[in-house]
């Protein structure tokens, strides 16, 4: 199908973007990588009046170290994250995850901020942001505000972002080298959206501290397994702890089925993913 008609502007500055977003009479969409938006337009699932192309705005792209923090610009393409030494060194979960995002041609174009703004429940990047307690910067004519990843994902394709706001950057704390990390997903085919996925991160000082167990593809958003986390918090990683955590993997999580798997299947896969991830960590670090 062919996209319906719309207007298109390509502002050079964020200020110009804010003016356009503040116009409540105009149904506008921000166009970043476009890897989901343009597909939706081609299918006529969306018919905005205006596309605001933010691809040429300076300063929205790039990965920088800033003391204990890493800042990823919203327009940073997935391929840049994939190839980044900074990410590989300080954000290993993201580094493990990023190659699972679709395929090479999509990663060349898709953006970090775009993935968060879309908030596909089966996507990898939102899950990693939640697992790493990322801080998302939303900018607008009234200034910048920061939103914790934990507060950002509200539901199926729904976020805390207001209509007049744009994601400009995402900040992460550098992770310690001995952090526990695991990323895994079950897809029928390479690069597909996950039937179920897991992003796991925790600090380890003899015992597990601050575990973040994030599932994606099983609910209406990336979601933390708080019951399982509670079991792991302060625990020594061993088989009984793993079994206990896995058994509670989807406790309290509202599951969503899709054409690939029923809720029961998704719950089972989530338990399996957690069990496997923790077991592999245990086997790596005797």
């Amino acid at each position: 199908m062919k996209a319906p008609e719309f207007d298109y502007v390509r502002p050079d500055t964020l200020e110009d973007v804010f003016v356009l977003l503040d116009d409540e009479t105009c149904d506008a969409r921000l166009l970043a990588g476009g890897q989901s938006l343009i597909a939706a337009l081609n299918f006529r699932l969306d018919a905005p009046e205006l596309l605001i192309d933010i691809n040429r705005i300076d300063g929205l792209s790039g990965i920088v170290e800033d003391g204990d923090n890493i800042r990823i610009g919203a327009l940073t393409r997935h391929v840049e994250v994939e190839n980044s030494q900074i990410v590989a060194r300080h954000l290993p979960l993201l580094s493990k995850a990023i190659g699972n995002v679709a395929h090479a041609a999509i990663r060349n174009r898709g953006t970090f901020g775009g993935s968060l703004a879309l908030a596909d429940p089966a996507a990898e990047i939102p899950a990693c942001c939640l697992a790493y307690d990322a801080i998302i910067t939303a900018s607008s004519s009234s200034g910048n505000r920061t939103i914790r990843a934990a507060d950002f994902f509200h539901g199926l394709y729904e976020t805390a972002l207001e209509d007049h706001e744009i994601i400009t950057a995402v900040e992460f704390k550098k992770r310690a080298p001995n952090d526990l990390v695991a990323f895994d997903e079950i897809t029928r085919r390479h690069g597909d959206y996950a039937m179920a996925g897991l992003a796991f991160s925790a600090a380890a000082k003899g015992k597990i501290e601050d575990p973040h167990i994030v599932f994606f593809g099983i609910s209406d958003r990336p979601i933390r397994a708080v019951e399982a986390e509670a079991i792991l918090e302060g625990a020594r990683l061993d088989q009984p702890a793993i079994a206990a955590a896995a058994s509670k993997a989807t406790e309290g999580i509202e599951l969503s089925s899709d054409t690939s798997a029923s809720e029961a299947m998704k719950a089972h896969l989530a338990r399996t993913l957690l069990n496997r991830a923790l077991t592999s960590i245990l086997e790596e670090k005797p």
């Binding site: 299918f43 029928r188 085919r189 390479h190 690069g191 597909d192 959206y193 054409t259």
Partner: peptide
């Protein structure tokens, strides 16, 4: 995949899976 009332549920290439090189 059809719903009970005859709606094709997976009429996109992302949802109707054909074999790919990776598998």
């Amino acid at each position: 995949l059809y719903s009970e009332n005859g709606q094709l549920q997976n009429a996109t290439m992302a949802d109707y899976l054909v074999p790919m090189a990776g598998e």
